[in-house]
Each structure stands twice: as C-alpha cells, then as structure tokens.
Computed example of a mutant assay.
Amino acid sequence: MNKIFLILLFLHSAVCYTQEAECDTLSATNIEAVTINSKDYEKIEYSYGLKQEINFKLATVNPNAEYELGLIFKNTSGKNGRISNVILFLHKSAKNLPLANLELNFYIVDSLTGKPLEKLNTEQIIFTPTSRKKGSFKINVERFNILFPAEGALVSIKWLPTEKHDMQVGPAIRLTNYKDRLTYTRYNNDPTKWGNNFNFSKKPGIYTNAMIGLEVYIKRRTVD
C-alpha cells in the first residue's frame, strides 16, 4: 500500500504547462562582487539553459514526494572556485496555489555517470518566495562557503512541504528547450533515483532544462 501511495505521489509531483513562444532572450544579470576581493578572485557567470527558445514552465509540484530538480553547471575554467550567487528564473504562479519554500542544494557531479553524488553544502539553504510575478531572483550563498569543483556541480531546488501538506504548490520554475541534457530530477531523497529523463521537447536533439543561473569566483593564479 505504501509503495502504491508513493508512486501516486510521484506521478502527481509535477505538472508542466506550455504557453506561446516569446521572442525575448534571457541572460543572467551582471552582479558585482561584494565581499570577495576582485584582486584575488575572478568572477565567472554561468547561464547554461537560459536562452529562452520557448516559454515553458513547471507549473505545480507535489512537495510531499520530496521532488527535487537540478541543473548541471560545467566548470569551463578547470579550477576549483567558490559559489557566490544562484539566480532562479520563476514564472507567474497561479493565485489558487500556496507558495512553498524552496531548498537549495549543491552536489558534486560523478565524472563517470554524470549524475549528482554527495552534497557540497553542509547547511540547509532556504529561499522563501514573496511574489507570484514572473521574474529573476538572486540568492547570495557566499556565507555558506560552497565549493565549485573543477568537475562542475549540480544546483538543485526542492519544494518543501507546507503546513497543510498541500498536494500542489508553487512557485512555478521557468523552463526552456536547449541542445544539452543538463537537468536531473529525483524524489524521496533517494540518491539512486536521479535521472535525466526530464524532457518535454518534441524535437530530436533538443531537451527541456530548468532556467537557473550561477555566479562563481575563481581564485586568480598567483604570480611568482
């Protein structure tokens, strides 16, 4: 009975809506360094999957299934860095849906399988949405001292259960179709459940990805 209940929870954990294509293109906002000395660090902005080829959103999620969705960021510098900011691109959320808190997590990526491994952050990081409007939301995570490995990392969001344990909640995360399969999902906090079959695109070689931005600081090489 418990297995059947969990399967039903997962099947109802996410609802995706497609709207008419828009002609605009999104890019991460330029954000200057605040607490990291620019003489010692170089800021790098990653925006994989942010080009808006179609207006797409993950409209509702069932948080009771502990649904987690993450985007892989490749480290193009090949050097370890420090994660500074995460940018979430959220769609307009329906008025009848309660807004849930979002938990942010960061994972090492397995170089062999490409799947997330152990968690990089040691503390819980929670973002509380305060608006139902469409927009970008910057979350500063510098104080958590999260490593950005040379192998890259997966940045995920998880919708946390509400006090009333609602079966459908917001906010709605924006999605786009992109040439790389970068998005992984799982449920029930099970590390064996990570999969990259999250795809609503009907075009061959084009995949659906979550719209998330990332800012990283890479330590400059010292000059002898």
Rank of each mutant, 00 (worst) to 15 (best):
K74D: 13
G49S: 04
L104Y: 02
N85M: 06
E45F: 04
A150P: 02
S84T: 13
R221L: 15
K92N: 12
Y217W: 12
V155Q: 01
K134H: 09
H91E: 13
N30C: 03
R220T: 10
S136A: 14
N188A: 14
K203Y: 05
P98F: 04
M211F: 03
K193P: 00
I212Y: 01
N145S: 14
F137L: 06
E142C: 04
M1C: 11
G195T: 15
N64Q: 10
A28S: 11
G114P: 05
I218L: 10
G135T: 03
K138D: 09
S47N: 13
A94G: 08
N55M: 10
Q19S: 11
F10M: 09
I44Y: 06
L99Y: 07
F10W: 12
R174Q: 15
N85Y: 11
L6M: 14
T35Y: 09
S77I: 06
K119M: 14
I72G: 00
I31D: 07
N199S: 09
K134G: 09
E142V: 10
K39R: 14
K51H: 12
H12T: 15
A150S: 15
P204S: 13
A150L: 07
N85P: 03
L175V: 08
A33R: 12
A172N: 04
L50M: 12
N62C: 06
N105P: 00
Y207C: 01
N121I: 05
W194F: 13
D110T: 10
